[in-house]
Nucleic acid binder design. Structure first.
Lengths: 223, 223
DNA sequence: GATAGTTTCATACAACTGTTTGAATTGCAA
DNA sequence: TTGCAATTCAAACAGTTGTATGAAACTATC
């Protein structure tokens, strides 16, 4: 076991620096300086720079995925194996958005790191993201059960658009704030989630006779 | 004037290499080797590597933006200064999607380059994208005219979601194809555009009394 | 307190990067 | 042809990068 101290000091420093300045601008020397450890410590504890980045991303990633599946499982159990589509979508995009957005002043290092990872997409992170497909298939299955009369193509497109809105909103949150001159409040995470879920639900249920009134209205804003 | 030959050989080689292997893996030496010119030629003709990348991206970018505005202007003129929201959204996402998607075997270098630029987001490109806000404001204005009873917040969110679906579909086209096992046909660009426009339109008109029947149905698939 | 295993450290390595330089070459006008 | 500018070229530059090394320091066990 030994004194994990150096190891976690590196992880903390790396996460902070990557979050603040991005992957392109931060070298191993920056990290070890910030962590007050020796240069060789990174390769000793992690093997390589890429493995350090991978570990950072995987840690946060599996936390998000676990939360996603937890919400999904809870919803399906409550619904007797078939959850409403809104709740499934909520389980899909909720944890991601909650993990990245929120009041900027109190935004965690982890959150800012994940935003960076979403924007810059460096090789070790891309590799991990590519393994996410199996995870998504679980949501495809749940969506199929929820909407048995929708075709697979529509399910896939609905999933794609849901993830699109969530990730793009995270990635371009700064630009959206600037474009809207602050009118779009990205600190109200639950509102953002509700908006994404609402639109994705419409995408998946449009044209159906059994279009129940949307659980949450899209409009919840002022003026 | 002189013999533009070297200059355009560099541009062509750079675009091709970046498209194939991404920005991270291509060095100036790779480019000049591929273009059969001297290493110093890049700095002589473009000033720096970043300016070369910027020129590549700007060229394609203004082409897309011009096409967007052309479509928008045509639509508004035909509607007497007020275009239907579907047509505005079509003008917004159509050129981008058409410029990046399409039959893979005959996909142009330019298209593949723009996909890369959408995925990797290197500094010189990010700088240019940040200047895109003024361009987007023109669409905000058109959308306001088209939907005078919608609040600004909803307009901004609708625009955000429309761009989200378009860009994410481009960026993750490979993954969507794999996830859907080919069932989502990303080569049928006009179908993709119709889907994005349809969902974005729903997002912007949901809850309105005057919800006219959607111009294009979302469903157009088999099985 | 000697020993074995782990961890830290300073330092060097090797390779690669974009950029610059100054001389050679070319193209064109007078 | 001469002269001048634009262009090309080989070579070197200056800096950075992640990684490897081997000795030193530490830690815990017996």
């Amino acid at each position: 076991m030994a004194s994990d101290h150096t190891r976690s000091a590196i992880l903390a420093a790396a996460e902070r620096l990557y979050a603040d300045r991005g992957f392109g601008d931060v070298t191993l020397r920056d990290i070890v300086a910030d962590a007050n450890v020796n240069l060789a410590a990174v390769n000793y504890h992690f093997g390589s720079k890429d493995e350090l980045i991978a570990e950072l991303f995987v840690t946060r990633s599996i936390a998000t995925n676990r939360e996603r599946l937890r919400e999904l499982k809870a919803a399906e159990e409550q619904g007797g194996g078939r959850a409403p589509i809104e709740v499934i979508l909520h389980a899909l995009v909720g944890p991601t958005l909650r993990g990245c957005l929120g009041p900027e002043n109190q935004r965690s290092t982890a959150a800012r790191f994940m935003i960076r990872a979403s924007i810059e997409s460096v090789p070790p992170i891309r590799r991990i993201k590519n393994r996410e497909i199996d995870h998504l298939r679980k949501f495809v299955s749940a969506m199929r059960r929820s909407l048995p009369d929708r075709s697979d193509v529509e399910i896939y497109w609905g999933l794609n658009f849901a993830l699109a809105m969530a990730h793009h909103t995270i990635r371009e949150s700064e630009r959206l704030t600037k474009l809207s001159e602050g009118k779009c409040d990205l600190d109200d995470v639950e509102d953002v989630i509700a908006r994404v879920v609402s639109v994705a639900t419409m995408a998946l249920t449009a044209g159906k006779a059994e279009t129940r009134p949307p659980a949450r209205a899209l409009a919840r804003d002022t003026r």
